[in-house]
Structures are given as structure tokens and as C-alpha cells.
Write a protein that binds this DNA or RNA. Structure first.
Lengths: 136, 136
DNA sequence: GTAGATGCAAAGTATTTGCGACAAG
DNA sequence: CTTGTCGCAAATACTTTGCATCTAC
């Protein structure tokens, strides 16, 4: 079982404020990669005094601490998700915006190989597939 | 030999103004994926009266016409490149911002396979590798 | 107690748009 | 001619920041 966000904050020395706890809880309970506005909406329902500036500051802090991942999918605002051990990539339904997470070890290996081929060590990568649902 | 941007405009019914010709020429001569500001700088040297609004309007129009590709690499502004037949992906040097274009048929095939696996037809995809140069 | 966090509103970026003048087809 | 484009400046969208106050540790 992996650490939750609050535990990660503690182990990384990130001060745990009331606002951060709320944001952490919302993100842990969201599997739909919300953008900042949406996150702010959800957070406001729990504490309406929280400001959007705090939400921006917090997602940035969490991202820099390796707690959240930021995604900038084609033509939309930045969206966030909780980061856990298992790395995965995204398949985006272009009609509905729905996101499917997937892992493909073979692609991962090939990416590394490509980087090596050009004399680079792969430090990060981004793979997004955009698709339309097949009629069955 | 593939069509140049001006020819593409004609065949797509895009009106060829003086400004668009200049922007087309600059993009054709740029292999470094400039952002709008940089493109505006280069364009201004040829015609200093051209406005940045026109540059924005033109890259958007060209993108929608399939003449240019827009890239939003991690944490930087949108950058553009001329679109030609050969599809390719990008390896970004995180230190210098330099971009290396590459093609890997095997990865392409696997991407399609992944989409199929989830019941989707792949309509687009984005693969970006971020690397640091290896010391030799 | 103190360093760091928050809320607010103001400032920054990047990009888009309304409008009257102008140019391409 | 007429429709679409241009330049300009104002508007928008998203994100960051200065500052006084407050809070976690």
C-alpha cells in the first residue's frame, strides 16, 4: 500500500495546512484529472473561504514535490492527477474528454532506446494517444 | 518533392496575403520550432509593420489548415513547425531546449495497438521524450 | 515565537477579438 | 465590388505575486 498525500507531505517536510489537507483529500478522491477551476469548485464546497490563489500555489507545490502530475492535453487547460508508483500514459477520448490510463512496457523500453540512440539519457517523457471510440 | 506553404494555401483556398507569404517563408526556413514571439521577431525584420495579432491569427489558421503543427512542450510557450508528409516525434534536450526529431515505426505500431485494445481508433498522438546529453 | 502559508486584489503572460481601414481575388 | 484580412488597442483567460495577516510546528 502506498503513502497517501498527507503522509507524503510529512515525509517531504511540506507543512500540512488545513487548505492543503482539503486539496489533498479532493485530489485523492478524484480519478478524472481535474483542472484548477474544477478542483477549486470541489474544494470550495468543503471550505468556501479557500482562495483560488491557494489552489494554484498548492498544485504547484505538490507537483514540485512529486505528489501530483500536471498534464497539458491538446487545447485544454492544465489538469492534475495524484502521482503514485505506477507510471502510466493516457489515452484521451477526443469526443468526451474521458481519459484512460494505460501502461505499455514495450513502448517504455523503445523510448529509452530512442533516447540512447541519440546520445541522451531519458529523464522524462510524455505519451498521449487521442482516439475515437470504435462502433461495435 | 512536397508542396510549399504558398502552394498549400492555394490548394486549400486560403487567401494569400503579403503577411501570410512572409510568415510562410520564415516558417519554411526555420527548423528550430519557434514560438509566436520569436516568429514575430523574425517576421518583423522583413516587414516591421506586421502586427503580432496577425502572427497569432496566421499560425492558428495554418494549424487548422494542416500547414503547421503546434507543440506545447512542458512548461514553455506554444512552438510551431512546418508540417510535411513524414510524421515524427520529438526528443527535447532539457538543458538547452534543442529539439531532435525522430521516427520509430515500432512505437507507432504499438500505439495503434494500445488504442485498439481499449476499443479506440487512434486519430492523433503525441510523444515527447525529455533527455539530458550523455557524457562520452 | 517564527518561518512559512493564506486571502485578496493587482499584475503578469499568452492569446483572442471588435472595429474601422484596407487589399486580394 | 465584396469578402476577408490587417493593425491597433482593448479584452480575455490563466496564472503568479506583493503585502498584511494568520497558522503550523
Amino acid at each position: 500500500m502506498s503513502e497517501n498525500i498527507e503522509q507524503k507531505c510529512l515525509s517531504k517536510g511540506v507543512k500540512l495546512t488545513e487548505q492543503r489537507k482539503i486539496i489533498a483529500k479532493i485530489m485523492s478522491g478524484s480519478s478524472d484529472h481535474p483542472d484548477v477551476d474544477e478542483l477549486y469548485n470541489r474544494v470550495s464546497k468543503i471550505d468556501s473561504k479557500i482562495s483560488i490563489a491557494t489552489v494554484y500555489r498548492t498544485v504547484k507545490l505538490f507537483e514540485e514535490s512529486g505528489i501530483l502530475a500536471k498534464h497539458e492535453f491538446k487545447g485544454s487547460k492544465a489538469r492534475y492527477e495524484e502521482l503514485n508508483e505506477g507510471h502510466h500514459d493516457h489515452l484521451i477520448d477526443v469526443k468526451s474528454g474521458k481519459i484512460i490510463e494505460f501502461v505499455d512496457e514495450e513502448i517504455e523500453k523503445l523510448q529509452k532506446k530512442v533516447a540512447e540512440k541519440y546520445g541522451y539519457n531519458l529523464v522524462d517523457h510524455k505519451l498521449e494517444l487521442y482516439g475515437v471510440k470504435k462502433k461495435t
